[in-house]
Design a protein around this nucleic acid. Structure first.
Length: 836
RNA sequence: GCGGACGUGGCGAAACCGGUAGACGCAGCAGACUUAAAAUCUGCUUUCCCCUGGAAGUGCGGGUUCGAGUCCCGCCGUCCGCACCA
């Protein structure tokens, strides 16, 4: 008699068995087996896990379990990225302490993750909001400080005057604070920076070595770093001894210059504005615009003629007007440009508007006239024209020639610019790592002595008024100066939470009490063998982590350069969205779907929205707990791995999970009704060994959907196969094959079939290569490239034999209808194509 | 605007180096078992036609090739990233 698989019993039972046996505890770094460090991006403890987490962690889990079965020493840890704003928002809204809120979220999510049956070494669990983690981060910060990788500088920030806080760019919506709705101001504050720009070239070059990263991510980082080579040159201001420094990547177009433009924030603009109210108004106008993408896109090129002129560096009698222009950025290059309208679209727009000369200096094909027609700048390659001694050169040769001349004559020098800026890490917030610095009126800025680390956050804080609770805490910031012992103040800024996630993978590999990590132990595990996470971290997190690792290398703390050898970015889990007539979002639990009609539970019509990433705000989230209750962990895991390629989005569907539940039970029936068969069945042997080989390569390539299909094929065949020793072996082996993906079912089946020990600790089965090839193959016979017949032949039948057989086929004779073949192409083992 | 990815049945997809398009799954249809339902099992399921067969077919239009979903050129569409970066 057959039974149904009972996940409610099996899940807990086997999870406990794994825990008791301690099989997921990573071995010591000295373990001689090849190391495999599998890591998924650690979660922010928002409260509940969602299907996106489930998908992410299931993928990593399959790989970790597979690696263990293939003889690797596996490190597969989990932790919590637990500092950050949501905890402070919760504190304001719900009057709970950020620490309490965070820790209870962690407890709830950990419970949910455990239900998934993940092969995680929980003994290495870490949480970035705990002093044993952030204290070590402070030690690293001080190491960087001592090595000159940290500095403090006045910098302008988005300031919300109502909440009295600094806002990140993404928190500024249409120029207003996302929470308060107040108009955001630019404010100058002293802020801490990490010198990521010191590593700009290395971070760029290093991308080349990351051949197991998606090209897309490497390209995004390359663009983000934004290296460009050009010339820094000076334009002397007519009638003064001052000059305007300009950066250009097109020095070859210098003879096409018709104006110089400076940014509204340029010091010269500010100086001129003091005596020119209209210029002052214009500068104000520039500052206001340009906060949103839409505004920038539609922004008109606008300028203000300062009345000043500069000398052309190659001809001092040639004077160019100086404008303040809204499209020139202060924080790129020198904050000033020269305009060559014929060969730059922005400059052309500007020149047409202010009726400035447009001189062609690069030939567009046969077009060499000095006067440039039209409103589309020519930015392509060509020969230099109308440029005196540069004429006839290519663009590249002219660039080199001008740079050489500039350096020789002293009006400029070749330079490389980066879009990348230093990493501002100061946050005027409570729930983050305190920056371990003391400000003394007499001794200046001093690091907190090592013996006083960690600098812990005070517990008794309030969130009932705006501003940083650390700053207004009655006692916390008041300390004695470590140098002169006079009263001094703690730094009240905390570190950007991206700092926390920039080294957690090192702390996972090695977590001594007295230092951030042990070098030898960390190097034994690192770099991470496979890192898995969302594409949304393609730039910031991954770039900061790469920087942090290099910084540690530079100061001699670690010997690795790149933290993540292989990166995989998985797709999102999506779900249809629903809205009621009055525009409120409805959760999938609140709607009924009957065919095309969707109604709420009480029958009111519902508007069907787009399929979108699951998010709380749109209520299209599906909580995994009820799924575990109904189907068990394995059906949920299986669904997450099925159908959609892992890098693509996966649409959650109720019918999909039901299908996986049925399949789980079909496998169970194979295990449950297994009987000892007699005799070999070569076709079953072949199927099994093909599945073994195919699944191994699919799992290694993370194409889990294909591995799933192979399990389906094997199971379909085994259900139909007559009893034989081969079938019995195949079903026993199946338990090992599914163990990475369906670990609970595999254990239950393994035990039910009398297997010794835990299937999770078994070796991945070896495949016999001789069983992967057939003795007979089916080959296609085409006439003029169209399939007309298929033949089943011995696999090594030679060309002549194939040709003869093909030409003898009734169907082919019929198709040819007496015509003589002009040519016959034979690909042994594949096809015969007859050209008639 | 710049950069990138993608486009295959009703749906999710597969197709390795250019060699039998649609494996596998979902949904659907028909049947078996059942008093009935659930569960399970069997079969069918790209479209069209003059249906023991044949034709067309991988967003559209061209090209290379004995042969193109796959390579090349040009469009169209969708999605993503960056965004006045000199």
């Amino acid at each position: 008699m057959t039974t149904r698989f009972n996940p409610f019993k099996a899940d807990g039972l086997w999870q406990k068995a794994w825990d008791d046996a301690g099989i997921f505890t990573a071995p010591a770094a000295s373990d001689p087996r090849p190391k495999s460090y599998v890591l998924e991006m650690f979660p922010y403890p928002s409260g509940r896990i969602h299907m996106g987490h489930v998908r992410n962690y299931t993928m990593g889990d399959v790989l970790a379990r597979y690696k263990a079965m293939t003889g690797h020493a596996v490190l597969h840890p989990m932790g919590w990225d637990s500092f950050g704003m949501p905890a402070e928002n919760a504190a304001m809204e719900k009057k709970v302490h950020p620490g309490d809120w965070t820790r209870s979220n962690i407890a709830a999510m950990k419970k949910q993750l455990k239900r998934l049956g993940l092969a995680i070494d929980w003994s290495r669990e870490l949480s970035t909001c705990e002093p044993d983690y952030y204290g070590q981060e402070q030690a690293l910060f001080l190491d960087f400080y001592k090595s000159g990788l940290v500095y403090r500088k006045e910098s302008s920030v988005n300031w919300d005057p109502v909440d009295m806080t600094v806002l990140a760019n993404e928190q500024v919506i249409d120029g207003r604070g996302w929470r308060s709705g107040a108009l955001v101001e630019k404010k100058k504050l002293n802020q801490w920076f990490l010198k990521i720009t010191d590593f700009a070239d290395e971070l760029l070059d290093g991308l080349k070595s990351l051949d197991q990263w998606p090209d897309k991510v490497r390209l995004m980082q390359e663009n983000w770093i934004g290296k460009s080579k050009g010339l820094n040159l000076s334009f002397n201001l007519v009638g003064t001894h001052d000059a305007i420094d300009v950066f250009t990547t097109r020095p070859d177009t210098l003879f096409g210059a018709s104006f110089v433009a400076i940014a509204a924030d340029h010091p010269l603009a500010a100086a001129l504005a003091e005596n020119a109210p209209r210029l002052k108004d214009f500068i104000e106008d520039c500052r206001r615009g340009g906060t949103t993408a839409a505004e920038i896109e539609t922004a008109e090129k606008k300028g203000f003629n300062t009345g000043l002129s500069v000398e052309h560096p190659l001809d001092s009698s040639w004077h160019l007007p100086v404008y303040v222009a809204n499209f020139v950025l202060m924080d790129y290059g020198t904050g000033a440009v020269f305009g060559c309208p014929a060969h730059d679209q922005r400059d052309l727009d500007f020149a047409r508007k202010y009726r400035l000369p447009v001189r062609r200096v690069v030939a567009d094909g046969d077009l060499t006239d000095l006067e440039f027609e039209g409103d589309t700048a020519y930015t392509g390659p060509g020969q230099i024209v109308n440029s005196h001694w540069l004429n006839g050169m290519s663009v590249d040769a002219a660039k080199a020639a001008i740079i050489a001349r500039a350096e020789q004559d002293g009006f400029g020098e070749g330079q490389t610019q980066y879009r990348l800026r230093d990493w501002g890490v100061s946050r005027q917030r409570y729930w983050g790592t305190p920056i371990p610095i003391i400000h003394c009126d007499f001794c200046g800025v001093l690091p907190v002595p090592r013996s006083q680390l960690p600098v812990t956050l005070p517990e008794d804080v309030t969130f009932d008024q705006p501003g940083n609770p650390l700053d207004r805490h009655p006692t916390w910031k008041h300390v004695a100066c470590p140098n002169c012992k006079e009263p001094a103040r703690r730094e009240t800024d905390t570190l950007d939470t991206f700092a926390d996630s920039s080294w957690y993978f090192i702390r996972f590999a090695s977590q001594p009490d007295d230092k951030p990590f042990d070098r030898e132990e960390a190097e034994a595990w690192l770099p991470v063998g496979q890192y898995i996470g969302g594409i949304e971290h393609a730039i910031l997190h991954l770039l900061y982590a790469r920087f942090w690792t290099r910084a540690l290398q530079r100061i001699g703390k670690i010997g690795i350069t790149e933290p993540f050898a292989a990166l995989f970015t998985q797709g999102m889990v999506t779900h249809e969205t629903y809205k009621s007539q009055d525009g409120a979002w409805l959760s999938p639990e609140d709607v009924k779907i009957a065919g095309d009609a969707v109604t709420s539970l009480d029958g009111a019509p519902v508007i069907r929205g787009r399929i979108e990433k699951m998010s709380k705000s749109k209520k299209n989230v599906v909580d995994p707990d009820p799924m575990f209750d109904q189907y068990g962990a394995d059906a949920v895991r299986w669904f997450m791995l099925s159908d959609s390629p892992p890098e693509r989005d996966l649409e959650w569907s109720e019918s999909g999970i039901e299908g996986t539940w049925r399949f789980v039970n079909r496998i169970w029936r194979l295990f449950d009704t297994l009987e000892d068969g007699q005799g070999a069945d070569r076709s079953v042997d072949q199927l099994l060994h093909r599945a073994i080989a195919g699944m191994a390569s699919d799992i290694e390539a993370l194409t889990f959907n294909k591995a799933v299909a192979k399990v389906h094929e094997l199971v379909n065949a085994l259900e139909k196969a007559p009893a034989s020793a081969s079938r019995t072996t195949a079903i026993r082996t199946l338990a090992r094959l599914i163990s990475p993906m369906l670990p609970h079912l595999a254990e239950e089946g393994w035990a039910c079939m009398g297997g010794a020990g835990l299937v999770a600790t078994q070796a991945w089965p070896e495949h016999d290569p001789s069983l992967l090839v057939d003795d007979e193959v089916t080959i296609a016979v085409q006439v003029n490239g169209k399939l007309r017949d298929t033949l089943t032949v011995a696999k090594d039948l030679d060309k002549a034999g194939l040709e003869a057989l093909a030409l003898a086929s009734d169907k082919i004779i019929h198709t040819l209808d007496g015509a003589a073949p002009k040519k016959v192409i034979v690909v042994p083992g594949r096809l015969v194509n007859i050209v008639a």
